[in-house]
Design a binder for these strands. Structure first.
Lengths: 209, 209, 209, 209
DNA sequence: GATGAATGAGCATTCATTCAT
DNA sequence: CATGAATGAATGCTCATTCAT
């Protein structure tokens, strides 16, 4: 019981809150730039224009800050999957939500990068990522089930597995493009990729008339 | 004394070669267990029953050892994609090579884990992984093209993109299962997954009669 | 601006005085509980329900506070040794003042603990303790001399040394019981100890008839 | 389980053992000079002519080294109390063992100082000191009981308490002289003190004829 | 009088790496 | 070939202290 409590989630003053936010923000940038392993506390505080000691008013350590970032990501995530479908165009909602997903991934590429870098090393990160995928996949599965009920999809395929595969593909493709920065093989526009992706999925899943 | 070279690729004596091999082997296990970032040189030498200093007779540093491992992986990789197809059953070769891929991935899960953990941080690793994916994807693309020529596949889809998506899905699914150790959502046998995967792809890509 | 004095002995307002007193009081408790070395300023202010900064309105630093406490102790100390003796019972006054000493020590155990912990390190504390012992011992020596004059004590023993030994024994015994919290070997009531102590001393010092 | 085991008790090579010994030795001196709290690891290694890092090959931290010192002290301690008594001179053995005790205390004054400084702060040190006192006191009690059986001592006094008091006095007197460096009040030779001490004890405890 | 923010020196500790034996 | 000792740079973390509000 070494005294002063670890680090309050929300500083009482405006200045405090803004400083904490600044630390989170510059840390995100640094993680994106050099990867988690190569960012020192002093890098973060320096970039935030603070002394080293200031860090510890807001976070227990570097890992603590990182977990905060990832939890914020998870909290926000994946509402976009709910896209109104069009009765006439079953492909539309798949395409649209894929696009939205790519946008979201792009905007938070730094944090998705962290999930991937650290999941093998840090069990808590692994848990966060697993949970985020679980949510993602079950949203997809839900959509698929709706389509199955509407008799627009094949029924001879395990919906859960299909959702996982679809999600895997989407996420990993995003990871390659936005985090690793690949083209991937030849430069294909993101929209084109999303379209091909949607096309394959729908063509493969939609029950032949 | 023209300067003893730092770390010979192949030690002259039998004992030396075996020691080097032991280091590579225990390091692989440790990387699999804790991830690259958390494995110290001393962990490796301790697990190998050696003193710390011994490490440097065989490798320049931890990264050197790791790159050796990854290069060995790349050298061996992806011949299995060449599976003879059966004229009557276009799904067969997809299914078979997916299974072979999963087996290969499982056997080398530790090294695939390294690729993922380090690609954002280490350009050389990124290059190795990119190359490995490039090979993998173009093998798939090649197969697809063959099928297109044989008029068994849709022609309205970009084969390159399709191959990337197919590869992404397969690789990431393997990563989740073998490296992260997920079920994923519910426990599905690997074979079942491979089958669903193949099914979707073929159903989606095969031109409707 | 001739420089605001660092820490006024007596704050002007009632609130100020009470806050200062609270700091002294909780600090005493904390010192008793964990020893001086393990108590941080933040521990003290936290226990007092104040912010860290508030401390410096009242004390220069932790050592300053501690010296205030010890000086208060010294100011109060050792009047109790003056116990009216009874002509018929020379043991009575020894016993009585030993009991009173134990009570006093018990009440201020935290501060006596400070004296012991810090005397080797802090010359000022050493001085305070030395002075306190000097007073204690000379009070005892004075008593002894009175008894010698009254021909109730052996005259072949150096009174000064005897007083020191007697004092040493009493103080250290108290230290063990009240600060270290020992039994000591078997659990003996404090009164019994005081009685044995007095008995030995008188029996040893009183001139055989 | 962070790898390399904490610190081997006995280094395998002569050089290692001598280095470890040097660290223990200079640390003892530094503790004596400045007190435990003020000695940094770097002080110790510097005095030993080593780099900071070398320290951790032999000890987990400063506290670990200190406990080793105190355990060595305890292991060695208090055999000297066994002094052959002389039938004709009951005072002799008391005097002699007191002298031996003083010599021992003087030689290890630095470590006895540690016991006193740290007992209130560190439970393990408290335990070591308590144990050392227990041994010391029970040796004295044993002696006293022998004398009681030989009918040379008063029987109306609790031997255990008497032993504790006698030990307390002796130890604390030594502490004042050798650690605090007091005279105490006036400068009295150590031998004279020991003599007075023995005299009082014997005169007080020996049964009047 | 009191607070929360910020500072910065101080220090322990880790760990890759070198080297004599 | 292997070991144990030693190095020293890197870095995290603590905590007394100052200060604007």
């Amino acid at each position: 019981m070494p005294g002063a409590e670890p680090a309050p989630q929300e500083p009482p003053t405006t200045k405090g809150r803004s400083t904490r936010q600044r630390l989170l923000s510059v840390a995100t940038d640094l993680f994106a730039e050099k990867g988690y392993a190569r960012v020192r506390i002093s890098d973060i505080t320096e970039a935030a224009g603070l002394s080293q000691g200031a860090f510890y008013r807001y976070f227990k350590d570097r890992r603590d800050l990182m977990l905060v970032l990832l939890q914020e990501l998870t909290a926000e995530a994946f509402d976009f999957v709910r896209v109104p479908r069009r009765a006439d165009d079953p492909m539309y909602s798949v395409l649209r939500s894929t696009q939205l997903y790519f946008e979201f991934y792009d905007r938070h590429r730094a944090l998705f990068g962290l999930l991937v870098e650290l999941s093998q090393t840090d069990p808590d990160v692994a848990k966060i990522w697993a949970e985020s995928r679980r949510v993602f996949y079950s949203r997809i599965a839900q959509s698929l089930r709706r389509e199955v009920r509407a008799r627009r999809l094949r029924t001879d395929v395990d919906v859960t597995v299909a959702a996982e595969l679809m999600g895997s593909m989407t996420e990993f493709y995003a990871f390659q493009r936005f985090v690793l920065g690949d083209g991937v093989v030849k430069d294909v526009s993101l929209d084109e990729s999303a379209r091909t992706l949607a096309e394959i999925w729908t063509a493969g899943l939609v029950r032949p008339a």
